[in-house]
Design a binder for these strands. Structure first.
Length: 748
DNA sequence: ACCCTCGCATTTTTT
DNA sequence: ATGCGAGGGT
């Protein structure tokens, strides 16, 4: 159905405008000049973005290749593309639709030689990067204990995120690493990258920015494909990304940024909410449009979220109102411990399932991944199917990285990192000693390892065995390289894996784990068929890092709050709302009030994922780092309006409120006399490990008594011999422990 | 060259 | 508890 540009009468209204509310329509139709769309959770943001692109095309303002649409994740890009193709009856998705990083690669491949690279440069992932930095630190005799490579990696990443080039590092910050040598190492690192013909993720943003800034050709090129520019999740942009956008948009000024300051949860990786405020400053004529009509959640859920987030001081302010009616109240449940929490959540999920909720529409959202385990255990026990979203990714598995390293080395002989990764895997008798010789030799010649190795085997530097092994390995590499043209990339991969002995290595190991690895490798080879070339496959691996496998079965999703952004579910469970867990103490330590506010936004994101039901739980005892700890309800619970909540044990809630108002910010309970602990004892449901007089001597116990041990948790007494007690623990099994370490309390 | 044990830290994570 | 890295022992 062709669009009808300029149609004003309703009967000719283009399909993409139909059903939009006023604010949405304004956001779609205001295509000229800078626009900032503040889009709260669940307000139909994606719809607006796609309609806007359709509108630009329909009005003939630009062709699809003149539209730039940037997202943060590949998934978001994919969804937008699919939606566009669906909406217009096909084929108008702009070619310049993608993540900042994927667009960065395209720009950089085109202008590679202008920044000292060739267009076939390799993209290093975090793992390679760390390895490289470790080498640099080792060469410089830096004590890795005192100055961890991770720290330098983080420092460099932060600099790149802020568009700070090597040599321009602020003295105060460079001083923070290895007595002021941070800046030097940044330079060395960058030089090493150039030698390797490689870039890291930060470079994919920094280098295109420098190109646009310094090279008028490159800038003109970029501006050509960005006649109309559109940015999703704008609150997540960092400084370089902002500078990019400003350069790209300065000519036409047709820049539309869509974001929500209340959902900014990535400041720790460089995202800068200030960019939203800065936008208004840099583009004073910017039109600001608020999307506040929420189509997702019921009014009670929305009220919970709104009241909570209102406690944040630094926000633009935006009020969501419900379109869907009242819906159900939120539920708040206090539990005895994390085991019971998992138990109860599982039980509630089954209850929802009986009411007709699909498991695909249920999510358990946790603050930190260690919380997931209790749920997995319980779900496995009762056979409730679940999926962990965002766990270790396919391409990050060691065996896959090894296989990819072989391919990288074949495609790019100067890829020293790939070489080092697989040169002795499987074992070829090329250990540390030989490798050290080779490394030094290569360094001295200023050449990559592979060509250096070719020279080295002509000498007597290596012991004969190593020399033979290295010669054979080089011959293999050369042969495989010769097959790049003749074999398809999946055939090549299969050949390499077989001939290198890599498959044999895992076949020889008869463990379940090895079997899994072989399966993964087979899956890798299979998935390679879908790519047009080896090059395309390698780029996919470094940039897209996902290999989602659709499986038909319905499953509950377990994921972190961070991973849940942008998703929605009918029923959402938010466990672990306790001090010491959420807000995360680390966030408070590192960023103080700003940290607390970001944690609160995380809570806001969690609640607003829910369409019809949200259940918040907290436990009085939780195993942290192997030890059982008493825990107090999260301060965020106090910030939830009681009118929109059904607390299943109001008694506890009341007690908890009473103590907390007396001692605001009481912090994480660490002794048995904290208010949280007292409350726990006061509530009958919290029949928890209350210490009592007499505990500690075996006289206080009798067989069958429920007891509690700080390390092993709840259990019951089996036998007593002097000051030692045999206890059957619920989790840890039968142990002989000192009575001294036991408290009377509820067992299992 | 490889294996094992000890010590240490341990939020979130895309590209 | 657990996992990872370093260093020492075989």
């Amino acid at each position: 159905m062709p669009f009808s540009p300029g149609a004003s009468s309703e009967s000719f209204e283009p399909a993409y405008l139909r059903g939009l509310n006023d604010a949405q329509r304004e956001a779609v139709e205001t295509i000229d000049g800078p626009v900032l769309v503040l889009a709260g959770a669940g307000v139909g943001k994606t719809r607006v973005l796609t309609s806007r692109i359709a509108h630009v095309l329909a009005t003939g303002r630009a062709r699809e290749h003149e539209i730039l649409a940037v997202t943060f994740t590949n998934k978001a890009a994919r969804e937008m593309r699919e939606r566009l193709e669906r909406m217009s009856g096909g084929a108008v998705a702009p070619p310049w639709l993608g993540t900042f990083h994927s667009l960065g690669v395209r720009i950089l491949r085109r202008y590679a030689e202008r920044v000292g690279l060739t267009s076939s440069f390799t993209i290093l992932d975090a793992d390679d990067q760390l390895r490289l930095i470790k080498q640099i630190l080792k060469d410089a005799n830096i004590d890795e204990k005192r100055w961890p490579a991770r720290m330098l990696a983080a420092l460099i990443e932060r600099w790149k995120n802020r568009a700070i080039e090597p040599g321009k590092t602020p003295a105060s910050e460079a001083a923070g690493f290895a007595n002021g040598r941070g800046g030097d190492f940044y330079k060395i690192y960058q030089d090493r990258l150039r030698t390797l013909n490689a870039v890291d993720f930060g470079d994919l943003l920094l280098e295109p920015f420098r190109l646009m800034r310094d090279d008028s050709d490159a800038l003109a090129f970029c501006q050509r494909f960005a006649k109309y520019a559109l940015v999703d999740e704008y609150q997540d942009t960092n400084a370089v990304q902002y500078l990019w956008l400003r350069l790209i948009a300065q000519k036409t000024r047709n820049l539309c940024c869509v974001g929500d300051d209340d959902q900014s949860i990535y400041s720790w990786r460089g995202a800068d909410v200030e960019n939203i405020l800065r936008f208004e400053k840099d583009f004073p004529d910017a039109k600001i449009i608020r999307l506040e009509r929420n189509y997702r959640s019921g009014a009670h859920i929305l009220a919970l979220a709104a009241t909570l987030i209102a406690n944040n001081k630094s926000r633009l302010g935006k009020t969501l109102y419900a379109d869907r009616g009242e819906g159900a109240k939120g539920r708040l449940i206090g539990l005895r411990d994390s085991v019971e929490e998992a138990h109860t959540v599982a039980e509630r999920i089954e209850r929802a399932q009986r009411r007709g909720t699909h498991l695909d529409e249920v999510a358990v959202l946790v603050r930190a991944s260690f919380q997931m385990r209790a749920f997995e255990e319980r779900f496995l026990e009762i056979g409730l199917p679940y999926r962990i979203v965002g766990g270790p990714r396919f391409y990050e598995r060691a065996e896959i990285r090894d296989a990819v390293a072989y391919l990288r080395l074949v495609a790019q002989p100067s890829d020293d990192l790939a070489f080092e990764r697989i040169v002795n895997s499987p074992r070829r008798g090329l250990g540390d000693a030989s490798l050290k010789t080779l490394r030094e030799f290569a360094r001295a010649r200023g050449a990559a390892m592979v060509p250096s190795a070719r020279a080295l085997i002509e000498s007597e530097e290596l012991r004969p065995a190593a020399r033979t092994a290295l010669r054979a390995f080089l011959a293999d590499l050369a042969r495989w390289r010769g097959q790049v043209e003749t074999l398809s990339q999946d055939q090549l991969a299969q050949t390499i894996l077989e001939e290198s002995g890599y498959l044999a290595m895992w076949t020889a190991e008869k463990t379940e784990e090895a079997k899994g690895k072989l399966e993964n490798l087979a899956e890798l080879v299979r998935s390679m068929q879908e790519f047009p070339s080896l090059q395309a496959f390698l780029e996919h691996v470094s940039l897209v890092m996902d290999a989602e496998r659709a499986d038909g079965a319905e499953r509950v999703s377990i994921m972190t709050l961070h991973a849940a952004k942008g998703l929605e579910f009918d029923e959402v469970f938010l466990p672990g709302w306790e001090e010491g867990v959420f807000p995360h103490p680390r966030a408070l330590e590192e960023a103080g009030r700003a940290g607390l506010e970001e944690e609160r936004r995380l809570a806001y994101v969690g609640i607003t994922r829910a369409r019809s039901g949200v259940t918040i739980t907290y436990a009085a005892n939780r195993q942290l780092r192997g030890l059982w700890q008493p825990s107090a309800p999260s301060r965020f619970i106090d910030e939830l309006p009681a009118a929109h909540l059904e607390a299943e044990d109001t008694h506890q809630a009341t007690v908890q409120r009473a103590w907390r108002t007396g001692t605001p910010g009481a912090g994480f309970a660490s002794s048995y006399e904290t208010p949280g602990w007292k409350r726990a004892r006061a509530a009958p449901e919290f029949a928890a490990p209350a210490p009592r007089a007499g505990a500690g001597s075996s006289a206080a116990f009798a067989a069958g008594d429920p007891v509690f041990h700080l390390k092993f948790g709840p259990g019951s007494v089996v036998a007593i011999e002097g000051d030692k007690v045999t206890v059957e623990f619920d989790k840890a099994g039968r142990k002989l422990v000192m009575a001294h370490f036991l408290q009377a309390g509820s067992g299992g």
